[in-house]
Simulated scan of single mutants.
Amino acid sequence: MSEIGAYQQSETGPGFGPGEAGFGDYVQLLKPRVMSLVVFTALVGLLVAPVHLHPVEAFAAILFIALGAGASGALNMWWDADIDAVMRRTQGRPVPSGRVQPGEALAIGLSLSGISVVMLALATNIMAGALLAFTIFFYAVVYTMWLKRWTPQNIVIGGAAGAFPPMIGWVAATGHIGIEAVLMFALIFMWTPPHFWALALFIKSDYDKAQVPMLTSTHGRKVTRNHILAYTVLLAPVPLWAAMTSIGGPLTLAVAVVLNGWFLIGAFRIWRRDEIMAEADGYRVEKRFFAFSLAYLFLHFLAFLAEAGLRHWGMGGW
């Protein structure tokens, strides 16, 4: 699962340091902030699907998707401990700080991976379990072990891992992939690059120290600004298209128009800035864009959920 929102709260500070691991350290190993957005988007995918699971089955599905997200987080922290140790915002994580041993993180990640995949398949259907297994593999191996350290397109390709949860939720309910699931996937997939590149603009030094080939480090901030605008333009039609499908309606269309208008304005403001201007105000515009990007994604999926509720009462949809 992608590290959506990982910068929202610093992972360093008083209380972090070598010592015996506590319960909170093992919770942190699972990246609970990332997991919360994974759970939310998966829940939306499940609830807006045309087939409705029994509440117990739905709860089980979301629980095992969450465990899969946690497994991905643990495997990511195990492999990236060397990078995390030199980045200011991650050096307080359980593994680089020495509170959780690498072998423990690996064992937890592998165990939760197996449990989550098997149990999701048993609770819902084999296709949902297989899709969760692929998502964990994609995040832990394709993104974490390969793309992240190899190419500045790491976020573009690796963003697929964070885009799968609503599709998994949809498949858990229906047993197949529909156009609506593809568009929810595409919404997160296209949103991820401008979201993370905005973050990279104001924490470039962290990625430089860790020698992670983020676009800001390999091509510079100006190129990154160009890419943010380009991907934001490409993103804009996706939620508008989703609003025209069975999961959409007047509410989702209105939300898509407003949010994408603001997002495009924000991307344009970032694009026209130079480094002298950005450094002078402490990257204020970039930080606001990053913060808004979190609200952007949450509100889109909240709109899908609200539309489903209105449709249930005969007031939503087309």
Rank of each mutant, 00 (worst) to 15 (best):
Ala198Ser: 14
Ala198Gly: 10
Leu199Gln: 02
Leu199Val: 06
Leu199Ala: 08
Ala200Pro: 00
Phe202Asn: 00
Ile203Met: 14
Ile203Asn: 01
Ile203Ser: 02
Lys204Phe: 00
Lys204Ile: 00
Lys204Ser: 10
Ser205Tyr: 02
Ser205Glu: 15
Ser205Gly: 03
Asp206Val: 01
Lys209Cys: 00
Ala210His: 11
Gln211Ile: 01
Val212Trp: 02
Val212Ala: 08
Pro213Glu: 04
Pro213Ala: 05
Met214Leu: 11
Leu215Val: 11
Leu215Asp: 01
Thr216Glu: 01
Thr218Met: 13
Gly220Met: 09
Arg221Ile: 06
Lys222Glu: 07
Val223Tyr: 11
Thr224Ala: 12
Arg225Ala: 13
Arg225Cys: 06
Ile228Trp: 09
Ile228Gly: 02
Leu229Gln: 08
Leu229Gly: 04
Leu229Ala: 12
Ala230Leu: 15
Ala230Met: 13
Tyr231Asn: 11
Leu235Val: 04
Ala236Asn: 05
Ala236Glu: 07
Pro237Ile: 08
Val238Ser: 08
Val238Leu: 12
Val238Cys: 09
Pro239Trp: 07
Pro239Leu: 07
Pro239Gln: 06
Leu240Phe: 10
Ala242Leu: 15
Ala242Asp: 03
Ala242Gly: 10
Ala243Leu: 08
Thr245Lys: 11
Thr245Arg: 13
Thr245Met: 14
Ile247Asn: 04
Ile247Thr: 13
Gly248Val: 09
Gly248Ser: 12
Gly248Asp: 09
Gly249Leu: 13
Pro250Glu: 09
Leu251Glu: 11
Thr252Met: 15
Leu253Thr: 12
Leu253Cys: 05
Leu253Pro: 05
Leu253Arg: 13
Ala254Leu: 15
Val255Ile: 15
Ala256Val: 09
Ala256Ile: 11
Ala256Thr: 10
